[in-house]
Simulated scan of single mutants.
Amino acid sequence: MAVTIRDVARAAGVHVSTVSRTFSAPNLVKVDTRERVLAAAAELGYRPNQAARALTTGVTHNLGLIVADIANPFFPPLIKSAQSYARVRGYQVFVADTDEDPRAEEELISILAKQVDGVVLVSPRLSNAAIAGLSADLPFVVVNRNVKGLPAVLMDIGSGAATAVEHLAGLGHRRLMLLGGPRGSWTSEQMRRSAAAAAERSGVSLEITGPNAPTERGGRLAAAAVLEAGATGVIAYNDLMAIGTIEGLSGSGVEVPREVSVVGVDDTVAGRVARPKLTTIAMPTQEAGRSAVDLLLHAIDMPGGRGAAKTTLETSLVVRESTAPPPPLK
């Protein structure tokens, strides 16, 4: 038989309400009484019902984690890291996928708000104003979006994009193309700005296309634009797009990297096992998951002074087989 709160009250010689207060509001119970209740609970193996406690305290010990596309290999390492860290801190994580749809994102936030103590929003597609409005009554942390007044974990993709441009320029490429991501993507905008500035510094041309679907199919479709522009160096919004671009180019008889070099973003398993193995900008996804949960729990613990702490994580270029010097001019 499961141990109940009444069993603990009987063993400790107190009223049931005292046991309840010991677990929900321990500061309201005398120290000696609280210690007696906790000792009895430990001896009997009693575990308080979290759902029942949530009804009286408003604390669920649940967190929401909303991602743009759970099928994208960028997100699972971040999700796993966030879940593991939250569990160590005594929290469980509800994961939801918006399928890149800002309307679904808004709906999910509204639903989860009734069941969690705070939300981590990863690569959101909603506007900053909409996110700020939804976060008015619930602690929020955003990943890869800089929203005024909200804590954020930012991966320095701007620096990564600039490094990718410099890498291609250093190999001798003079006509580059940046395949932008979906509409509303903070990452895509940071890439666009930094890549354009790096191209100007390096003395190379850069054409930017987008918005594009951040998928393998999106990359295959974008391959036609690469061919039309005569670009010999390509930087894609993510690894999936980069792999799709390589497929699209191959289907048109263009070899990577002998004729066109391609750089991805994320450093996912898919890019590591692709042929050719993908040169990519490594994103610190696991560290981002832990940092986001840490910021969120701090915001939950200090509801009156959450502030807008920002954590910026470094990115790095991983050079593999999909980049090489351009073919000689004919």
Rank of each mutant, 00 (worst) to 15 (best):
M1H: 13
V3W: 08
I5Q: 14
R6K: 14
R6D: 13
A9D: 08
R10E: 13
R10L: 07
A11S: 02
V19Y: 07
V19E: 05
R21C: 02
R21V: 00
S24C: 08
A25E: 15
A25C: 08
A25V: 10
P26V: 14
N27W: 08
N27M: 10
K30N: 15
R34S: 09
L38E: 15
A39W: 07
A40T: 02
A41C: 11
A42L: 06
R47Y: 06
P48S: 06
N49Y: 01
Q50H: 04
A51W: 01
A54F: 03
A54E: 10
A54C: 11
A54Y: 01
T57P: 03
T60G: 01
L63K: 01
G64I: 12
A68M: 12
I70H: 08
P73Q: 10
P76L: 13
L78I: 11
L78N: 07
S81A: 13
S81P: 13
S84F: 01
A86V: 08
G90I: 10
G90M: 04
Y91A: 05
Y91F: 15
Y91K: 01
Y91C: 04
V95N: 10
L108H: 05
I109D: 12
L112K: 12
A113I: 08
Q115P: 00
L121K: 02
R125F: 06
R125S: 04
L126N: 14
S135N: 11
L138M: 10
L138Q: 12
L138W: 13
V143S: 09
N144I: 02
R145P: 06
V147G: 14
G149C: 05
G158K: 00
G158R: 02
A162F: 07
T163C: 02
T163H: 06
H167C: 07
L168V: 09
G170D: 04
R175C: 04
M177C: 05
L179T: 06
L179W: 05
T187V: 15
T187G: 09
Q190M: 13
R192W: 02
R193D: 07
A197T: 09
E200A: 15
S205Q: 12
R217I: 11
G218D: 10
L221Q: 14
E228N: 04
G233H: 06
V234H: 08
Y237P: 04
N238L: 02
I243N: 06
T245P: 00
S250G: 15
G251K: 01
E255Y: 03
R258F: 04
E259T: 11
T268W: 09
R275Q: 11
R275Y: 15
P276I: 10
T279Y: 08
T279H: 08
I281T: 07
A282F: 01
T285G: 01
Q286H: 00
E287A: 15
A292N: 02
D294S: 15
H298E: 15
A299N: 09
I300W: 09
G304M: 13
G304T: 14
A309T: 15
T311I: 15
T312A: 10
L313N: 06
L313A: 11
E314A: 14
V319C: 05
V319Y: 03
R320G: 02
E321D: 15
S322D: 07
P325T: 03
P326L: 06
L329C: 11
